[in-house]
Design a protein around this nucleic acid. Structure first.
Lengths: 196, 196
DNA sequence: AAATTTTCTTGTCCTATGGCAAGAAATCAA
DNA sequence: TTGATTTCTTGCCATAGGACAAGAAAATTT
């Protein structure tokens, strides 16, 4: 059950005592997603703040040519929501879709705010999650600027090997900022290097 | 005086009434930076949450070769601090340096937290600023993936023309994810196109 | 298991951008 | 004002990665 996993997650990542964590998680509810099911669709307002306890979710948007560009991958133990849409109450420009069956628990915007208001601990947790996402995105942006595609690939496969078990390479390619053909060539090179 | 500008900023960007805004800003203090002065240095903890009322600040980091990579430009009417370092209390990997003389007002981490705790309105404001920064960064990241350098240049010159008045082109180039020579060529092309 | 669709790889050719170095221009310092 | 730095531009060549198309392989559907 995802709520239990979320309690653990909160306790481990913050100094919040278990009783408090349980209090926080009390207002969440469990949910399951099938593979390929949409957690969020572009044009709608992200209204679920969700904790993914198992599975893999991909966020993507469409570029001017209508091609999908992966903006993020979420694996177990991550908080999933579209920051801008969720907090500003504006339509999302991204889709969030399950790459695999997923177990999660969630809370709605309204409830989240009430919980933030009532529980300072949870507020801190929420801020930490935001800061976390920010830091990750910044790192990714920098890597797009000053690293080669192969280096980014190497980093990703080390950091989130799970993705490679589930997501098709074209999803991963656009996340790395390259085409699927380039990724294919990079992989050929890379695996040769690893064999030495 | 920067504090007055900050009051206006808060009132305009949020529904917060002027009295409340003044209450918030009361704990801030004005500060001035000379051109080239460091607001923050890598290795130190970002401890000032500052509102820039005039001038331009550049954030940058050093890549593996030791070359500067601009991570952001801040112009008047922006909140300036290194999110990750500030909230996690860890050393910054970025420098923040004044591109021009700057007027600003600021508050320290400790005081900010107290103010957040005491004033729900301010909390919301703080969150909005974070969400804002997040959304901007996301847009920039996407543009690095699916736009040409010239398109990014075009967008930047329209969005933040002030930067071009103050920052040397090499600073702008690395922000756009290209070399200064490439930027120079792009500018040549670009200005020819504009002349038609 | 056959048919269909999707994913992955590979070839050929092309282009945007990088690396380097040399001038030109502008800015700053003495 | 002169010399020293820094900034900006430009030329030449190199290269990472894109575009497109064709197979091969794998997964999905019937």
């Amino acid at each position: 059950m995802s709520k239990a996993a979320f309690v653990n997650f909160i306790c481990q990542r913050t100094g919040i005592p278990e009783v408090k964590a349980e209090e926080i998680v009390a207002s969440f509810q469990n949910i399951h997603f099938e593979k390929d099911e949409f957690i969020l669709e572009a044009g709608k307002i992200s209204d679920r703040y969700l904790f993914l306890s198992s599975g893999c979710i991909r966020a993507y948007t469409l570029d001017l040519e209508g091609d999908e560009v992966t903006t993020n991958f979420y694996t177990s133990g991550e908080v999933v929501f579209e920051v801008s849409s969720f907090f500003r109450r504006i339509p999302s420009s991204e889709y969030y879709q399950a790459e695999t069956p997923c177990e999660a628990c969630y809370i709605h915007y309204q409830e989240l705010n009430e919980a933030f208001h009532a529980m300072p601990h949870f507020r801190d947790f929420g801020r930490a999650m935001l800061v976390n996402g920010f830091a990750n995105l910044k790192e990714r942006t920098l890597s797009l600027i000053n690293e080669e595609a192969e280096t980014r690939y190497d980093r990703l496969i080390r950091t989130k090997p799970d993705i490679f078990k589930h997501a098709p390479l074209k999803h991963i390619a656009s996340y790395l900022g390259i085409t699927d053909s380039s990724l294919s060539r990079i992989r050929r090179n890379y695996s040769q290097k690893q064999e030495l």
